[in-house]
């Protein structure tokens, strides 16, 4: 306890620009999370629709794809893409990245990180969306068909607006998980908050005060707790509001830590 709270061991926080250095790293994590969730939502919607397709082989392949990527560790995927992607792809990424993009995005390794994050999360979100769509009463689709809508029209105007609405709280929950998972990209040498924490705790000629590892990572952990706690409150509020409007109950999505979907 003495060690933990001794002012000497927290001196690093207000020395030099350590705090700013770490906070900027944390910002990179948030950026990675936001970019990944946007792409994961798009890919996830496509996967969910493919899985619900009336054509048997299509839905089977999409289902197998989702189940494989959902059941593999995310760190495994990130590591695989970082090691296994041809270097020409990474080069193409570096060439394509505009100069105004955040510095951490310039490295070709980020491509591996994004591929892993998007593939994994799109599979999870596809399953959430599918559960949301399937939770709608069958009568909705039947009524749309009876009104003479084509399948595409009934999806566009009847099924998706209601089905996707139900998954908004679950998506926010998944964003929390994703936010935590962005720390994993430090494994493949992207200087986000974890790497920066290591830099601060290492002794080197550019380090003014060598910071103790324990305190630095408690500080980083607190950053995550604050942001994710706010997000989880948001998710709960959305959930309660949704339940009031639609009178639905929550149903869990299997294989995910903390995600539930509302069902009738």
């Amino acid at each position: 306890m003495n060690y933990l709270f001794s002012p000497d061991n927290w001196e690093w926080l207000w020395t030099g620009n350590n705090a700013r250095f770490i906070l900027e790293g944390f910002l990179i994590n948030l950026e990675i999370a936001v970019v990944s969730i946007i792409f994961a939502l798009i890919v996830g919607l496509i996967l969910a629709l493919l899985r619900l397709s009336p054509i048997k082989p299509v839905s089977f392949i999409a289902g197998a794809w989702v189940d494989v990527f959902r059941n593999l560790p995310l760190i495994f995927l990130i590591l695989y893409f970082a090691l296994g992607l041809p270097s020409s792809w990474k080069q193409a990424w570096e060439d394509a990245m505009p100069g105004w993009a955040p510095e951490a995005f310039q490295s070709g390794l980020v491509l591996g990180a994004f591929l892993g994050l998007v593939l994994y999360n799109s599979a999870v979100l596809a399953e959430i969306m599918r559960a949301g769509i399937l939770s709608l009463p069958r009568g909705q689709g039947e009524a749309a068909a009876a009104l003479g809508m084509t399948r595409a029209q009934s999806l566009r105007y009847v099924i998706l607006p209601q089905g996707l609405r139900r998954m908004v709280p679950a998506t926010v929950s998944q964003l929390i998980t994703l936010n935590k998972d962005t720390t994993l990209v430090s494994i493949i040498a992207i200087t986000e908050v974890m790497r920066r924490g290591r830099i601060v705790t290492s002794s080197g000629f550019f380090v003014e005060v060598q910071a103790p590892i324990l305190q630095v990572f408690i500080f980083i952990g607190l950053l995550f707790v604050i942001v994710n706690y706010a997000l989880s409150r948001l998710s709960r509020r959305l959930e309660i509001r949704e339940r009031k409007i639609t009178g639905t109950k929550m149903k869990r999505v299997s294989g995910v830590e903390d995600v539930a979907v509302e069902t009738a």
Partner: peptide, 20 residues
């Protein structure tokens, strides 16, 4: 414990405590 990344917990419990 729900909102902190597992990797941070690992850093704290291994490298952090060992340094302490």
């Amino acid at each position: 414990f729900r909102n902190v990344p597992l990797l941070v917990l690992l850093f704290i419990s291994y490298a952090g405590l060992r340094r302490a």
